[in-house]
Every structure is written in C-alpha cells, then in structure tokens.
C-alpha cells in the first residue's frame, strides 16, 4: 500500500469520526448556550429541551447503527474494501449516542431514580425495547477490540456480534412505538433496516471480493 492511499484512508477514517462527533458537539454547544442564560427555544432545543435532547440523541444512535449495518452490504455491492474499517467506529458511535441518550433520559427525565426507571421499563414496551437495544450493544462495544477477537476466537466473536441484528430490530420497534399516531419516519428506518438485513441474504457467490 502506497503512502498516498494510506494518507487517504486515514483522512477517510477521521472523516467518519468528525462527522459522527458533529451532532453531539452541536448539542453540547446548545446546552452551553442554555447554561449561559439563553432560553431553550432560542438555543434551538424547543421549549422542552430535555425531551428534544433525548430524541435527537436517540435518532443519531439509530443513524449510526444503520450506517454500521450498511457497511457490509455496501462493500459487497460495490467491492469497496476501504469501507470495512468504518464499521467499528460507526458501531461504537451508535453505542456512544445510545449511552448518552439513556443517561439523559435516566438523569433528567427519571430524576436518576432506579425505582422510577424500573417502573418505566416494566410498564412501557418501548422503554423495554430501548433498554434491550442498549443491553445488546453493550457486549459488542466491550468486545470491539482486536484483542477481544483474539481472545474469543473469530468464530465465537462473530457469533456474538450477530447480536447487532436483534439490536437493530429492537431499536426500530422502539422508534415506531415511540411516536404518536401514524408517522412515516420510523417506518422508513424500519424499511431501511429490513433492506440492509435482506441484502445480507443475497448469496455470496454473486459477489466478487
């Protein structure tokens, strides 16, 4: 591999990091504005900044997860090997957004009370599915290092990381159940997920790698 391509791949990799960090940086910026006395409305977080923040974090978790799930089918479709190293950072960003999403909900919506959180999980299916998503992504994030692949062995590691599919499914339903009435947006995400998972079913022999 020549230095030019190495330089390019490095730039691409950092590009992903910057692109995924940007929505979080913007949110933090808006919270800093509020801390400085700007009204939530003027800071761009609506009159209900806690709910808006939770929603935005959740949406970015979903988007990052969907992008991570898009890498393999895209690679197979296009033969672009340089996409491969994006999968891990995108997956980790999904988990990071999921963690902050959960944390803001727990602290600012549930008052950091575990009994209230538990009551919410037990009573509301969409909360249960959100928690399930996070719990399924947790072991994947914890075993995202090369050392973990070695320790677990490739086959077992891969089996474990198939948890990403039910995690995606749970996240999609979490979103569908979250909105009131019939809204198209969560169904678009669900449709995209089904497409991404369906593309994996296409027999491998038709793809040249």
């Amino acid at each position: 591999m020549g230095t030019m391509t190495r330089g390019r791949s490095l730039a691409l990799r950092w590009g992903v990091q910057v692109a995924m960090a940007l929505p979080l940086a913007i949110l933090v910026g808006r919270w800093l504005m509020m801390a400085g006395g700007v009204s939530p409305l003027d800071a761009g977080l609506t009159a209900e900044p806690v709910a808006e923040t939770i929603n935005r974090l959740g949406l970015w978790a979903l988007r990052a997860l969907w992008l991570a799930l898009a890498i393999t089918p895209l690679r197979r479709l296009t033969g672009w090997a340089w996409l491969a190293p994006w999968r891990r950072p995108l997956g980790l960003w999904a988990f990071a957004y999921g963690c902050i999403h959960l944390l803001v909900y727990f602290v600012l919506d549930q008052g950091a009370a575990f009994d209230l959180l538990w009551a919410d999980v037990v009573k509301h299916r969409f909360i249960l599915l959100g928690m399930a998503t996070w719990l399924m992504l947790l072991p994947l994030a914890l075993t995202s290092t090369r050392a973990s692949i070695r320790r677990l062995g490739g086959r077992r590691w891969q089996a474990l990381h198939r948890l990403v599919y039910p995690a995606g499914g749970a996240a999609a339903i979490h979103f569908i159940l979250r909105v009131k009435g019939f809204q198209i947006e969560p169904w678009i995400y669900a449709g995209l997920l089904l497409t991404l998972l369906g593309m994996r079913m296409v027999p491998r022999r038709r793809i040249k790698v």
Binding site: D109, A119, K123, H124, R125, F126, L177
Partner: peptide, 14 residues
C-alpha cells in the same frame, strides 16, 4: 398510565 407515558409525573415547560 398510557402505554407510552407514565402519567403520575409531568414536565412543566420551563
């Protein structure tokens, strides 16, 4: 309770 929202509490805007 509503299937989605716990109704015992509310967030007053502001």
């Amino acid at each position: 309770d509503h299937p989605r929202w716990t109704q015992s509490r509310e967030r007053r805007i502001g």
